[in-house]
Design a protein around this nucleic acid. Structure first.
Lengths: 336, 336
DNA sequence: CTGTTAGCGCTTTCAC
DNA sequence: GTGAAAGCGCTAACAG
């Protein structure tokens, strides 16, 4: 920067201002500086800038898995919005493990992110302490935590499945099973899946169904393969079953393919519904009835909220904890 | 760090050494320091460390899209390997646009990454200049560039489809079409798709087929939906067609689902093959014949190579350009 | 609109 | 095995 300043005949401070844009630099001076920058091939060093200004320009984002397009879309939404502020994203994958989440947060805090966005509302005690100590904005997404750490952008996973149950009952189904939604295990737990199963169970109780059946599928990530095996078990264990709700569209798809193999008509012999409105569900045959939640919207809303929260923190006017509820809808398709 | 040093009765230098691990600090001193760290809830500031040591601990990774699990797996592989060195990843999505790629690289270089990993072998002139100026290790992946920037971890996309063609011919198919693989367009081009189409065309010529037919699908990302429409066009335009190779498993899946709808038996009426060995292809009905390339392995190999290259750069012994070829294989399943 | 001064919080380097 | 001094490259804060 000193080289650029010398070449443009100004001080480094003026170069710094010119490069940050907008602020109080005469147009002619700016032009001269930009020319010097180009001629020298100068690239601003944000590391030094971050140290000096105490603004890293980073936000940490933690999601359970790489291979779930729902979470990827949320990250995309966050990234789109925050890149407008020049904020970059540090992504971490927890593999559905809360211990791994804590480890990642520990590592990431060393980069002094200006905010942290996590998935879900269940975390280790250590994670909560780290985040409180860090004294930066925190957003929990994809769920409505009972005791939020900071801000929330989510929805009730249980409510989505209650709605799905209501819809299936309305369509005349009475013997409805549920696939997925295990409790926590050694390798991590699928909290959102468990919530969805709770929604199923609450609906069974509330709607006065006399029978119900849950087929667990093991540790997350719940995948296509699990759905195929689970649907066979469901039908074997409960031959009267008329419909199955899967914890996600992936096992729903696996279940449908397995039904094709066994020549069980879908929805004739068994209706199948999923969760997440994955691309696959729109083009599968039959198309899959599902719960749609805009994952990108979760990300965009979280991004905007984080942007506001960071501005608040910078100006010593912290944003009071916000809670944004993302709407969901039931999309009925051919599989029910 | 000064607070920790005071509490432990040492200098900041000793704290720094203790925190970096391994190096010359008496065990007892280290214990004392760690206790102080815990008591104070101290978190090391890597930003300051990076500035001082001139080692950012970052590597930039650029991939075309969030929503392609193949690329995500490659990132996962890179991240797994590099996290062992304590290196963090800055991911950028180019949306298949070379201009966007250049913009992202410009932005990321401001963080002084110690290396850059890009997807594909075609880039803007500006990108090449930026990377050369930066004088850091560069790895191109997912292709075998004619004129590499630095290192390469990839495979020949054309060769994979030539192999697929040979296999289909061996199985008795003669009238084989190709879906996808457009040339560049306004919104970016799918270079790997184009390479695959070239492989198809080379095979058509080399194997002495008299007829061939390509159905383009438009700008990437090529998706499930495109496959459904394209297969209809293929059959309408070339009623004799016996088999179709798709540029990826996603359109192959879409094509198969569309065939189910129209009651065109797969592979009876039309055999369909894809590329990428996506999870969907293993569980779809019928299961999909595909080209398998280990995406995670591309990532792991690139990660290891980057690790070596960075160590080389640090010790002033630059690693000469390496070229790693990732093997591929044809997986025959029910769809052919 | 521009410049000067004084750090940001660490690590390098050299000395002991 | 440990410490003291001197920055890394930028920007905040204030002055003009």
């Amino acid at each position: 920067m000193a080289d650029v300043a010398r070449r443009a005949g100004v001080s480094t401070m003026t170069v710094s201002r010119a490069l940050k844009g907008g602020r109080s630099v005469k147009e002619e001076t700016r032009t001269r500086i930009m020319r010097a920058v180009d001629e020298l091939g100068y690239v601003l060093d944000l590391t030094a800038g971050a140290l000096s200004s105490k603004r890293s320009g980073f936000v940490s984002v933690l999601i359970p898995s790489v291979n779930n397009s729902n979470f990827s879309e949320t990250v995309h939404g966050i990234s789109d919005v925050l890149s407008e502020d020049g904020t970059q994203i540090l992504v971490g994958y927890t593999d559905y493990s809360k211990a791994q989440e804590q480890r990642l947060i520990e590592t990431m805090l060393r980069r002094r992110p200006e905010g942290v966005i996590v998935t879900g509302g269940v975390h280790t005690e250590g994670t909560r302490e780290l985040l409180e100590q860090a004294a930066i904005p925190v957003i929990e997404t994809w769920d409505m935590p009972a005791d939020p750490i900071g801000h929330v952008v989510g929805f009730s996973n249980a409510a989505t499945i209650e709605d799905m149950m209501a819809r299936l009952l309305f369509r005349g189904y009475r013997k409805i099973g549920f696939i997925g939604g295990d409790d926590g295990r050694a390798n991590g737990s699928d909290d959102r899946g468990r919530e969805r199963r709770l929604g199923y169970e609450r609906a069974v109780a509330a709607l006065g169904l006399e029978t119900s059946h849950v087929v667990p599928v093991g540790d997350p990530p719940v995948s296509i393969e699990h759905g195929g095996r689970a649907v066979v078990r469901l039908v074997e264990e409960w031959p009267d079953v008329e419909a199955a709700i899967c914890v996600s569209d992936l096992p729903a798809f696996g279940a449908i393919m397995e039904c094709h193999r066994r020549e069980w008509a879908v929805p004739g012999r068994l209706a199948i519904a999923g969760f997440g409105d994955f691309e696959i569900s729109r083009f599968c045959w039959p198309t899959i009835t599902t719960v749609s939640v805009s994952c990108t919207e979760i990300g965009r809303k979280a991004g905007h909220l984080m942007s506001r929260a960071i501005k608040g923190a910078r100006s010593e006017k912290p944003l009071p904890p916000q809670s944004v509820v993302i709407p969901h809808s039931i999309i009925e398709r051919e599989s029910t």
